[in-house]
Design a protein around this nucleic acid. Structure first.
Lengths: 257, 257
DNA sequence: CGCAAGATTGAAGTACGTCAATTCCAGTGG
DNA sequence: CCACTGGAATTGACGTACTTCAATCTTGCG
Protein backbone atom coordinates (compact mmCIF):
# COMPACT_ATOMS: atom_id res chain seq x y z
CA UNK A 1 0.00 0.00 0.00
CA UNK A 2 1.25 3.44 -0.92
CA UNK A 3 2.19 5.40 2.21
CA UNK A 4 1.40 8.59 0.31
CA UNK A 5 -2.20 7.54 -0.13
CA UNK A 6 -3.69 9.80 2.58
CA UNK A 7 -1.84 12.83 1.23
CA UNK A 8 -2.90 12.20 -2.34
CA UNK A 9 -6.44 11.61 -1.17
CA UNK A 10 -6.37 14.91 0.62
CA UNK A 11 -4.90 16.91 -2.24
CA UNK A 12 -7.40 15.42 -4.65
CA UNK A 13 -10.12 17.16 -2.70
CA UNK A 14 -8.80 20.15 -4.57
CA UNK A 15 -8.06 18.73 -8.00
CA UNK A 16 -6.98 15.45 -9.58
CA UNK A 17 -3.27 14.80 -9.14
CA UNK A 18 -1.66 13.36 -12.29
CA UNK A 19 0.58 10.32 -11.93
CA UNK A 20 3.67 12.38 -12.74
CA UNK A 21 3.07 14.60 -9.71
CA UNK A 22 2.50 11.58 -7.49
CA UNK A 23 5.75 10.10 -8.72
CA UNK A 24 7.60 13.29 -7.90
CA UNK A 25 6.23 13.23 -4.39
CA UNK A 26 6.99 9.54 -3.92
CA UNK A 27 10.49 10.26 -5.06
CA UNK A 28 11.07 13.00 -2.53
CA UNK A 29 9.64 11.34 0.57
CA UNK A 30 11.75 9.67 3.23
CA UNK A 31 11.18 6.32 4.90
CA UNK A 32 8.52 6.07 7.59
CA UNK A 33 9.38 6.68 11.24
CA UNK A 34 7.37 5.53 14.24
CA UNK A 35 6.67 7.87 17.15
CA UNK A 36 5.20 7.35 20.59
CA UNK A 37 2.55 9.76 21.87
CA UNK A 38 3.70 13.18 23.12
CA UNK A 39 6.87 13.28 21.04
CA UNK A 40 7.79 16.71 19.76
CA UNK A 41 8.22 16.53 15.99
CA UNK A 42 9.33 20.16 15.83
CA UNK A 43 9.74 22.71 18.59
CA UNK A 44 9.12 26.43 18.71
CA UNK A 45 12.27 28.25 17.63
CA UNK A 46 13.51 25.40 15.45
CA UNK A 47 14.66 26.07 11.92
CA UNK A 48 13.80 22.67 10.52
CA UNK A 49 15.27 21.50 7.22
CA UNK A 50 12.47 19.07 6.49
CA UNK A 51 8.73 19.00 6.27
CA UNK A 52 6.81 16.31 8.16
CA UNK A 53 4.05 14.27 6.61
CA UNK A 54 1.72 12.49 9.00
CA UNK A 55 0.79 9.02 7.76
CA UNK A 56 -0.92 7.49 10.75
CA UNK A 57 -2.14 8.74 14.14
CA UNK A 58 -2.96 12.24 15.36
CA UNK A 59 -0.59 15.12 16.06
CA UNK A 60 -1.15 18.71 17.04
CA UNK A 61 0.30 22.19 16.91
CA UNK A 62 0.57 23.86 20.28
CA UNK A 63 2.02 26.72 22.24
CA UNK A 64 2.89 26.72 25.90
CA UNK A 65 2.53 29.70 28.23
CA UNK A 66 5.11 30.31 30.95
CA UNK A 67 2.63 29.30 33.65
CA UNK A 68 2.47 25.86 32.08
CA UNK A 69 -0.88 26.19 30.35
CA UNK A 70 -0.81 24.65 26.91
CA UNK A 71 -3.03 25.63 24.02
CA UNK A 72 -3.46 23.17 21.19
CA UNK A 73 -3.90 25.18 18.01
CA UNK A 74 -4.61 22.56 15.37
CA UNK A 75 -5.08 18.85 14.95
CA UNK A 76 -3.14 17.02 12.28
CA UNK A 77 -4.45 13.73 10.92
CA UNK A 78 -3.13 11.27 8.32
CA UNK A 79 -2.45 13.02 5.02
CA UNK A 80 -1.64 16.34 6.67
CA UNK A 81 1.65 18.08 6.03
CA UNK A 82 2.70 19.45 9.39
CA UNK A 83 4.91 22.36 8.52
CA UNK A 84 4.88 23.43 4.89
CA UNK A 85 5.37 27.00 6.07
CA UNK A 86 9.01 26.36 6.95
CA UNK A 87 9.65 26.52 3.21
CA UNK A 88 9.14 30.29 3.57
CA UNK A 89 9.18 31.16 7.27
CA UNK A 90 12.54 29.99 8.54
CA UNK A 91 11.69 29.79 12.23
CA UNK A 92 8.91 27.76 13.87
CA UNK A 93 6.59 29.99 15.91
CA UNK A 94 4.94 26.98 17.58
CA UNK A 95 5.64 23.35 18.36
CA UNK A 96 4.21 20.18 16.88
CA UNK A 97 3.79 17.04 18.93
CA UNK A 98 2.29 13.62 18.39
CA UNK A 99 -0.92 13.18 20.37
CA UNK A 100 -1.14 9.43 19.78
CA UNK A 101 1.28 6.85 18.36
CA UNK A 102 2.16 8.12 14.89
CA UNK A 103 3.85 7.17 11.65
CA UNK A 104 5.66 10.09 10.08
CA UNK A 105 7.64 10.61 6.88
CA UNK A 106 9.30 13.78 5.65
CA UNK A 107 10.48 15.78 2.70
CA UNK A 108 13.67 17.85 2.54
CA UNK A 109 12.67 21.50 2.88
CA UNK A 110 14.53 22.60 -0.24
CA UNK A 111 13.11 19.80 -2.34
CA UNK A 112 9.54 20.64 -1.38
CA UNK A 113 10.08 24.32 -2.05
CA UNK A 114 11.52 23.70 -5.52
CA UNK A 115 8.75 21.27 -6.19
CA UNK A 116 6.08 23.79 -5.29
CA UNK A 117 7.60 26.41 -7.51
CA UNK A 118 8.31 24.20 -10.48
CA UNK A 119 5.29 21.91 -10.60
CA UNK A 120 2.58 24.49 -10.72
CA UNK A 121 -0.32 22.11 -10.26
CA UNK A 122 1.22 20.48 -7.22
CA UNK A 123 2.27 23.82 -5.83
CA UNK A 124 -1.24 25.18 -6.01
CA UNK A 125 -2.61 22.00 -4.43
CA UNK A 126 -0.25 22.36 -1.47
CA UNK A 127 -1.07 26.02 -1.22
CA UNK A 128 -4.75 25.10 -1.20
CA UNK A 129 -4.11 22.74 1.71
CA UNK A 130 -2.43 25.52 3.65
CA UNK A 131 -5.32 27.87 3.03
CA UNK A 132 -7.80 25.28 4.22
CA UNK A 133 -5.76 24.90 7.41
CA UNK A 134 -6.08 28.63 7.86
CA UNK A 135 -9.84 28.45 7.34
CA UNK A 136 -10.04 25.78 10.04
CA UNK A 137 -8.03 28.00 12.34
CA UNK A 138 -10.51 30.83 11.79
CA UNK A 139 -13.40 28.58 12.69
CA UNK A 140 -11.61 27.46 15.86
CA UNK A 141 -11.16 31.10 16.77
CA UNK A 142 -14.90 31.60 16.43
CA UNK A 143 -15.45 28.62 18.70
CA UNK A 144 -13.14 29.90 21.42
CA UNK A 145 -14.46 33.41 21.13
CA UNK A 146 -18.18 32.90 20.75
CA UNK A 147 -19.32 29.39 21.58
CA UNK A 148 -19.86 27.80 24.98
CA UNK A 149 -18.22 24.53 25.97
CA UNK A 150 -20.95 22.26 24.62
CA UNK A 151 -21.08 24.03 21.28
CA UNK A 152 -17.28 24.01 20.99
CA UNK A 153 -17.06 20.28 21.53
CA UNK A 154 -19.96 19.58 19.19
CA UNK A 155 -18.31 21.72 16.55
CA UNK A 156 -14.98 19.98 16.94
CA UNK A 157 -16.57 16.55 16.67
CA UNK A 158 -18.44 17.51 13.49
CA UNK A 159 -15.26 18.86 11.98
CA UNK A 160 -13.11 15.88 12.82
CA UNK A 161 -15.75 13.48 11.55
CA UNK A 162 -15.78 15.25 8.19
CA UNK A 163 -12.02 15.58 8.02
CA UNK A 164 -11.52 11.92 8.87
CA UNK A 165 -14.12 10.93 6.33
CA UNK A 166 -12.31 12.89 3.62
CA UNK A 167 -9.23 10.69 4.04
CA UNK A 168 -11.15 7.46 4.47
CA UNK A 169 -10.84 7.09 8.24
CA UNK A 170 -14.49 6.87 9.22
CA UNK A 171 -16.84 3.94 9.60
CA UNK A 172 -20.30 5.39 9.11
CA UNK A 173 -20.58 8.25 11.57
CA UNK A 174 -17.82 6.99 13.84
CA UNK A 175 -14.09 7.56 13.94
CA UNK A 176 -11.07 6.97 16.15
CA UNK A 177 -10.43 9.92 18.45
CA UNK A 178 -7.13 8.91 20.07
CA UNK A 179 -7.05 11.78 22.55
CA UNK A 180 -7.32 12.13 26.30
CA UNK A 181 -9.84 14.50 27.84
CA UNK A 182 -6.86 16.54 28.98
CA UNK A 183 -5.75 17.03 25.38
CA UNK A 184 -9.28 17.88 24.31
CA UNK A 185 -9.55 20.38 27.16
CA UNK A 186 -6.26 22.01 26.12
CA UNK A 187 -7.78 22.39 22.67
CA UNK A 188 -11.10 23.83 23.73
CA UNK A 189 -9.68 26.27 26.22
CA UNK A 190 -11.54 24.74 29.16
CA UNK A 191 -10.54 22.69 32.20
CA UNK A 192 -10.35 18.91 32.15
CA UNK A 193 -13.18 18.70 34.65
CA UNK A 194 -15.44 20.79 32.49
CA UNK A 195 -14.44 18.85 29.39
CA UNK A 196 -15.50 15.68 31.15
CA UNK A 197 -18.85 17.14 32.15
CA UNK A 198 -19.47 18.49 28.68
CA UNK A 199 -18.88 15.08 27.12
CA UNK A 200 -21.24 13.58 29.66
CA UNK A 201 -23.93 16.02 28.61
CA UNK A 202 -23.53 15.10 24.96
CA UNK A 203 -23.69 11.43 25.88
CA UNK A 204 -26.74 11.97 28.07
CA UNK A 205 -28.47 13.71 25.16
CA UNK A 206 -27.75 10.64 23.05
CA UNK A 207 -25.77 12.69 20.56
CA UNK A 208 -22.56 10.69 20.90
CA UNK A 209 -21.38 7.33 22.15
CA UNK A 210 -17.82 6.50 23.09
CA UNK A 211 -16.23 3.13 23.39
CA UNK A 212 -12.52 3.16 24.06
CA UNK A 213 -11.16 5.77 21.73
CA UNK A 214 -13.89 5.28 19.16
CA UNK A 215 -16.25 8.22 18.92
CA UNK A 216 -19.65 7.57 17.40
CA UNK A 217 -21.97 10.37 16.39
CA UNK A 218 -25.49 9.05 16.79
CA UNK A 219 -27.50 11.90 15.36
CA UNK A 220 -25.23 14.01 13.21
CA UNK A 221 -28.06 16.30 12.17
CA UNK A 222 -28.81 17.22 15.75
CA UNK A 223 -25.14 17.58 16.64
CA UNK A 224 -24.68 19.96 13.73
CA UNK A 225 -27.79 21.89 14.71
CA UNK A 226 -26.50 22.24 18.28
CA UNK A 227 -23.44 24.20 17.16
CA UNK A 228 -24.84 25.61 13.94
CA UNK A 229 -22.30 23.66 11.96
CA UNK A 230 -21.65 24.76 8.39
CA UNK A 231 -18.94 22.64 6.74
CA UNK A 232 -18.29 25.18 4.01
CA UNK A 233 -15.07 26.36 5.64
CA UNK A 234 -13.49 22.95 5.00
CA UNK A 235 -13.70 23.68 1.27
CA UNK A 236 -14.29 20.01 0.55
CA UNK A 237 -15.97 18.92 -2.64
CA UNK A 238 -19.01 17.05 -1.31
CA UNK A 239 -18.52 14.20 -3.73
CA UNK A 240 -14.97 13.56 -2.65
CA UNK A 241 -15.86 13.62 1.02
CA UNK A 242 -18.79 11.24 0.68
CA UNK A 243 -17.06 8.74 -1.56
CA UNK A 244 -14.22 8.30 0.88
CA UNK A 245 -16.30 6.78 3.64
CA UNK A 246 -15.31 3.19 4.18
CA UNK A 247 -18.78 1.90 4.94
CA UNK A 248 -22.34 3.02 5.58
CA UNK A 249 -22.23 5.64 2.85
CA UNK A 250 -25.70 6.75 3.93
CA UNK A 251 -26.07 8.11 7.41
CA UNK A 252 -28.38 6.34 9.83
CA UNK A 253 -30.69 8.72 11.63
CA UNK A 254 -31.65 6.21 14.31
CA UNK A 255 -32.62 7.24 17.81
CA UNK A 256 -29.93 7.24 20.46
CA UNK A 257 -30.36 5.67 23.89
CA UNK B 1 2.83 59.70 -2.85
CA UNK B 2 2.64 56.11 -4.00
CA UNK B 3 -0.57 54.47 -2.75
CA UNK B 4 1.25 51.16 -2.85
CA UNK B 5 3.74 52.34 -0.26
CA UNK B 6 2.26 50.51 2.75
CA UNK B 7 2.11 47.24 0.81
CA UNK B 8 5.65 47.54 -0.44
CA UNK B 9 6.78 48.44 3.04
CA UNK B 10 5.09 45.36 4.38
CA UNK B 11 6.45 42.97 1.79
CA UNK B 12 9.94 44.32 2.29
CA UNK B 13 9.81 43.00 5.81
CA UNK B 14 10.40 39.73 4.03
CA UNK B 15 12.86 40.72 1.31
CA UNK B 16 13.71 43.73 -0.85
CA UNK B 17 11.26 44.19 -3.69
CA UNK B 18 12.98 45.18 -6.95
CA UNK B 19 11.57 48.10 -8.93
CA UNK B 20 10.33 45.77 -11.68
CA UNK B 21 8.08 43.97 -9.19
CA UNK B 22 6.79 47.24 -7.83
CA UNK B 23 6.00 48.39 -11.33
CA UNK B 24 4.10 45.20 -12.03
CA UNK B 25 2.02 45.75 -8.91
CA UNK B 26 1.42 49.41 -9.68
CA UNK B 27 0.30 48.37 -13.09
CA UNK B 28 -2.27 45.88 -11.83
CA UNK B 29 -3.87 47.97 -9.10
CA UNK B 30 -7.16 49.83 -9.48
CA UNK B 31 -7.98 53.36 -8.44
CA UNK B 32 -8.64 54.06 -4.76
CA UNK B 33 -12.15 53.82 -3.34
CA UNK B 34 -13.37 55.41 -0.12
CA UNK B 35 -15.50 53.49 2.35
CA UNK B 36 -17.42 54.47 5.45
CA UNK B 37 -17.07 52.38 8.62
CA UNK B 38 -18.96 49.06 8.77
CA UNK B 39 -19.09 48.55 5.03
CA UNK B 40 -18.79 44.93 3.93
CA UNK B 41 -15.95 44.67 1.41
CA UNK B 42 -16.67 40.98 0.83
CA UNK B 43 -19.32 38.74 2.36
CA UNK B 44 -19.27 35.10 3.33
CA UNK B 45 -20.32 32.99 0.37
CA UNK B 46 -19.08 35.49 -2.21
CA UNK B 47 -16.91 34.36 -5.08
CA UNK B 48 -15.06 37.63 -5.55
CA UNK B 49 -13.15 38.31 -8.74
CA UNK B 50 -10.80 40.81 -7.17
CA UNK B 51 -8.46 41.07 -4.24
CA UNK B 52 -8.74 44.07 -1.91
CA UNK B 53 -5.76 46.07 -0.76
CA UNK B 54 -6.27 48.25 2.28
CA UNK B 55 -4.51 51.61 1.94
CA UNK B 56 -5.88 53.55 4.89
CA UNK B 57 -8.02 52.78 7.92
CA UNK B 58 -8.73 49.50 9.69
CA UNK B 59 -10.84 46.58 8.48
CA UNK B 60 -11.54 43.16 9.89
CA UNK B 61 -12.47 39.61 9.03
CA UNK B 62 -15.47 38.32 10.92
CA UNK B 63 -18.08 35.62 11.16
CA UNK B 64 -21.57 35.99 12.54
CA UNK B 65 -23.42 33.31 14.50
CA UNK B 66 -27.16 32.87 14.00
CA UNK B 67 -27.89 34.31 17.45
CA UNK B 68 -26.29 37.56 16.28
CA UNK B 69 -22.98 37.26 18.07
CA UNK B 70 -20.14 38.38 15.91
CA UNK B 71 -16.55 37.21 16.18
CA UNK B 72 -13.85 39.34 14.64
CA UNK B 73 -11.12 37.02 13.42
CA UNK B 74 -8.41 39.36 12.21
CA UNK B 75 -7.57 43.03 11.93
CA UNK B 76 -6.41 44.43 8.61
CA UNK B 77 -4.36 47.61 8.54
CA UNK B 78 -2.85 49.68 5.73
CA UNK B 79 -0.66 47.53 3.49
CA UNK B 80 -2.66 44.36 4.14
CA UNK B 81 -4.13 42.37 1.28
CA UNK B 82 -7.55 41.33 2.50
CA UNK B 83 -8.29 38.22 0.53
CA UNK B 84 -5.39 36.73 -1.40
CA UNK B 85 -6.85 33.31 -0.70
CA UNK B 86 -9.61 33.85 -3.26
CA UNK B 87 -6.96 33.21 -5.89
CA UNK B 88 -7.17 29.54 -4.85
CA UNK B 89 -10.27 29.09 -2.67
CA UNK B 90 -13.17 30.20 -4.83
CA UNK B 91 -15.67 30.89 -2.07
CA UNK B 92 -15.28 33.23 0.91
CA UNK B 93 -15.75 31.39 4.21
CA UNK B 94 -15.98 34.66 6.16
CA UNK B 95 -16.80 38.33 5.63
CA UNK B 96 -14.58 41.37 5.60
CA UNK B 97 -15.82 44.77 6.75
CA UNK B 98 -14.31 48.17 7.29
CA UNK B 99 -14.05 49.03 10.98
CA UNK B 100 -13.21 52.69 10.41
CA UNK B 101 -13.31 54.95 7.33
CA UNK B 102 -11.06 53.24 4.79
CA UNK B 103 -9.35 53.71 1.48
CA UNK B 104 -9.27 50.53 -0.58
CA UNK B 105 -7.82 49.53 -3.95
CA UNK B 106 -7.99 46.15 -5.64
CA UNK B 107 -6.36 43.76 -8.08
CA UNK B 108 -8.19 41.51 -10.53
CA UNK B 109 -8.10 37.98 -9.11
CA UNK B 110 -6.70 36.43 -12.28
CA UNK B 111 -3.99 39.03 -12.61
CA UNK B 112 -2.77 38.54 -9.07
CA UNK B 113 -2.76 34.77 -9.47
CA UNK B 114 -0.73 34.92 -12.68
CA UNK B 115 1.56 37.42 -11.10
CA UNK B 116 2.22 35.17 -8.11
CA UNK B 117 3.00 32.21 -10.33
CA UNK B 118 5.14 34.04 -12.84
CA UNK B 119 7.11 36.47 -10.70
CA UNK B 120 8.63 34.07 -8.26
CA UNK B 121 10.05 36.67 -5.90
CA UNK B 122 6.78 38.53 -5.64
CA UNK B 123 4.84 35.30 -5.33
CA UNK B 124 6.93 34.15 -2.41
CA UNK B 125 6.61 37.55 -0.74
CA UNK B 126 2.82 37.39 -0.96
CA UNK B 127 2.88 33.84 0.27
CA UNK B 128 5.04 34.97 3.17
CA UNK B 129 2.44 37.60 4.05
CA UNK B 130 -0.29 34.96 4.09
CA UNK B 131 1.76 32.73 6.36
CA UNK B 132 2.37 35.59 8.77
CA UNK B 133 -1.39 36.20 8.87
CA UNK B 134 -1.78 32.57 9.81
CA UNK B 135 0.81 32.91 12.56
CA UNK B 136 -1.11 35.87 13.96
CA UNK B 137 -4.27 33.80 13.88
CA UNK B 138 -2.55 31.09 15.90
CA UNK B 139 -1.50 33.60 18.50
CA UNK B 140 -5.05 34.96 18.73
CA UNK B 141 -6.26 31.43 19.29
CA UNK B 142 -3.85 31.11 22.20
CA UNK B 143 -5.21 34.35 23.60
CA UNK B 144 -8.83 33.26 23.41
CA UNK B 145 -8.04 29.81 24.72
CA UNK B 146 -5.57 30.48 27.48
CA UNK B 147 -5.37 34.12 28.48
CA UNK B 148 -7.73 36.13 30.67
CA UNK B 149 -9.28 39.38 29.53
CA UNK B 150 -6.49 41.64 30.73
CA UNK B 151 -3.78 39.50 29.13
CA UNK B 152 -5.74 39.29 25.89
CA UNK B 153 -6.10 43.02 25.60
CA UNK B 154 -2.47 43.62 26.54
CA UNK B 155 -1.39 41.11 23.92
CA UNK B 156 -3.54 42.70 21.25
CA UNK B 157 -2.19 46.15 22.01
CA UNK B 158 1.41 44.97 21.83
CA UNK B 159 0.73 43.27 18.52
CA UNK B 160 -1.03 46.20 16.92
CA UNK B 161 1.68 48.59 18.07
CA UNK B 162 4.32 46.44 16.39
CA UNK B 163 2.27 45.89 13.26
CA UNK B 164 1.50 49.57 12.93
CA UNK B 165 5.13 50.43 13.50
CA UNK B 166 6.17 48.08 10.70
CA UNK B 167 4.18 50.12 8.19
CA UNK B 168 5.12 53.49 9.64
CA UNK B 169 1.89 54.27 11.48
CA UNK B 170 3.24 54.80 14.99
CA UNK B 171 4.43 57.87 16.80
CA UNK B 172 6.74 56.60 19.49
CA UNK B 173 4.74 54.05 21.44
CA UNK B 174 1.37 55.38 20.36
CA UNK B 175 -0.88 54.62 17.43
CA UNK B 176 -4.38 55.29 16.15
CA UNK B 177 -6.81 52.60 17.27
CA UNK B 178 -9.97 53.59 15.39
CA UNK B 179 -12.21 51.00 17.06
CA UNK B 180 -15.12 51.09 19.47
CA UNK B 181 -15.05 49.06 22.66
CA UNK B 182 -17.83 47.01 21.11
CA UNK B 183 -15.57 46.04 18.20
CA UNK B 184 -12.72 45.28 20.57
CA UNK B 185 -15.03 43.13 22.70
CA UNK B 186 -16.17 41.20 19.60
CA UNK B 187 -12.52 40.53 18.91
CA UNK B 188 -11.54 39.41 22.38
CA UNK B 189 -14.53 37.20 22.92
CA UNK B 190 -15.75 39.17 25.94
CA UNK B 191 -18.68 41.49 26.64
CA UNK B 192 -18.54 45.22 26.03
CA UNK B 193 -18.92 45.88 29.73
CA UNK B 194 -15.98 43.68 30.57
CA UNK B 195 -13.93 45.19 27.78
CA UNK B 196 -14.55 48.59 29.29
CA UNK B 197 -13.50 47.46 32.75
CA UNK B 198 -10.41 45.77 31.43
CA UNK B 199 -9.28 48.94 29.67
CA UNK B 200 -9.90 50.85 32.87
CA UNK B 201 -7.63 48.46 34.74
CA UNK B 202 -4.84 48.95 32.23
CA UNK B 203 -5.28 52.71 32.47
CA UNK B 204 -5.32 52.59 36.27
CA UNK B 205 -2.07 50.62 36.21
CA UNK B 206 -0.60 53.39 34.08
CA UNK B 207 0.18 50.97 31.27
CA UNK B 208 -1.84 52.80 28.64
CA UNK B 209 -3.34 56.21 28.01
CA UNK B 210 -6.13 56.91 25.56
CA UNK B 211 -7.09 60.19 24.04
CA UNK B 212 -9.79 60.03 21.41
CA UNK B 213 -8.81 57.10 19.25
CA UNK B 214 -5.11 57.45 19.98
CA UNK B 215 -3.73 54.65 22.11
CA UNK B 216 -0.50 55.32 23.93
CA UNK B 217 1.50 52.58 25.56
CA UNK B 218 3.29 54.14 28.50
CA UNK B 219 5.46 51.26 29.63
CA UNK B 220 5.77 48.79 26.79
CA UNK B 221 8.11 46.55 28.76
CA UNK B 222 5.58 46.11 31.53
CA UNK B 223 2.72 45.63 29.08
CA UNK B 224 4.67 42.91 27.32
CA UNK B 225 5.56 41.29 30.63
CA UNK B 226 1.90 41.26 31.65
CA UNK B 227 0.91 39.02 28.75
CA UNK B 228 4.26 37.34 28.19
CA UNK B 229 4.52 38.90 24.78
CA UNK B 230 6.98 37.38 22.35
CA UNK B 231 6.90 39.13 18.95
CA UNK B 232 8.60 36.27 17.16
CA UNK B 233 5.33 35.09 15.61
CA UNK B 234 5.16 38.31 13.57
CA UNK B 235 8.27 37.19 11.70
CA UNK B 236 9.42 40.79 11.37
CA UNK B 237 13.04 41.61 10.82
CA UNK B 238 13.83 43.81 13.83
CA UNK B 239 15.70 46.32 11.74
CA UNK B 240 12.80 46.88 9.38
CA UNK B 241 10.31 47.27 12.21
CA UNK B 242 12.42 49.76 14.14
CA UNK B 243 13.40 51.90 11.19
CA UNK B 244 9.78 52.45 10.22
CA UNK B 245 8.84 54.37 13.32
CA UNK B 246 8.05 57.96 12.46
CA UNK B 247 9.47 59.50 15.59
CA UNK B 248 10.86 58.73 19.01
CA UNK B 249 12.91 55.79 17.81
CA UNK B 250 13.93 55.13 21.42
CA UNK B 251 11.23 54.26 23.88
CA UNK B 252 10.65 56.44 26.92
CA UNK B 253 10.39 54.46 30.10
CA UNK B 254 8.80 57.25 32.10
CA UNK B 255 6.48 56.59 35.01
CA UNK B 256 2.75 56.66 34.35
CA UNK B 257 0.30 58.58 36.50
C1' DC C 1 -3.13 -8.96 40.50
C1' DG C 2 -1.83 -4.36 40.76
C1' DC C 3 -0.18 -0.17 39.01
C1' DA C 4 -0.63 4.48 36.80
C1' DA C 5 -2.91 7.11 33.79
C1' DG C 6 -7.11 8.56 32.79
C1' DA C 7 -12.05 9.42 33.88
C1' DT C 8 -15.41 10.91 37.11
C1' DT C 9 -17.50 13.30 41.12
C1' DG C 10 -18.61 16.99 44.71
C1' DA C 11 -18.09 21.33 46.80
C1' DA C 12 -16.73 25.88 46.83
C1' DG C 13 -14.74 30.01 44.41
C1' DT C 14 -14.29 33.51 40.57
C1' DA C 15 -13.99 35.72 36.15
C1' DC C 16 -16.96 37.14 33.31
C1' DG C 17 -21.94 37.94 31.46
C1' DT C 18 -26.43 40.33 31.49
C1' DC C 19 -29.52 44.01 32.33
C1' DA C 20 -30.54 48.53 32.93
C1' DA C 21 -29.31 53.02 33.92
C1' DT C 22 -26.51 57.02 33.61
C1' DT C 23 -22.85 59.94 31.85
C1' DC C 24 -19.92 61.60 28.30
C1' DC C 25 -19.05 63.67 23.97
C1' DA C 26 -18.69 64.98 19.04
C1' DG C 27 -21.40 66.76 15.65
C1' DT C 28 -25.53 69.60 14.20
C1' DG C 29 -28.84 73.03 13.86
C1' DG C 30 -30.60 77.21 15.54
C1' DC D 1 -22.49 80.26 21.35
C1' DC D 2 -25.55 76.92 23.19
C1' DA D 3 -29.06 73.54 23.48
C1' DC D 4 -30.01 68.97 21.27
C1' DT D 5 -29.13 64.37 19.93
C1' DG D 6 -27.48 59.73 19.21
C1' DG D 7 -23.74 56.78 19.70
C1' DA D 8 -20.26 55.41 22.71
C1' DA D 9 -18.37 54.91 27.39
C1' DT D 10 -19.18 53.96 32.08
C1' DT D 11 -21.37 52.20 36.34
C1' DG D 12 -23.88 49.04 39.74
C1' DA D 13 -26.21 44.94 41.01
C1' DC D 14 -26.81 40.45 40.30
C1' DG D 15 -26.55 35.85 37.81
C1' DT D 16 -23.86 31.85 35.88
C1' DA D 17 -20.59 29.16 33.16
C1' DC D 18 -16.65 27.74 34.14
C1' DT D 19 -12.39 26.87 37.42
C1' DT D 20 -9.96 24.80 41.17
C1' DC D 21 -9.02 21.44 44.51
C1' DA D 22 -9.16 17.14 46.17
C1' DA D 23 -10.92 12.71 46.22
C1' DT D 24 -12.43 8.42 44.24
C1' DC D 25 -13.34 5.27 40.70
C1' DT D 26 -12.01 2.74 36.00
C1' DT D 27 -9.38 0.61 32.95
C1' DG D 28 -5.69 -0.88 29.93
C1' DC D 29 -1.82 -3.54 30.55
C1' DG D 30 2.73 -5.72 32.37
Amino acid sequence: MDPLDPLVRKLEQFAPLPETDRAVLRNAVSEVIDHRPNDDLVSQGDKPDRVHLLLDGWAGRYKTLPDGRRQIIAYLIPGDLCDVHVTVLAEMDHSIATLSPCKVAHFPRETLFDLMVERRRLGVALWWATLVDEAVLREWLVSLGSRNAEERVAHLLCEMLLRCRAVGLTRGDSFLLPLTQQQLADTMGISTVHMNRTLQNLRADGLITTSGSRMTVNRLGDLMALCDYDPMYLHQTDTAAASNDRANPRRVFGEGV
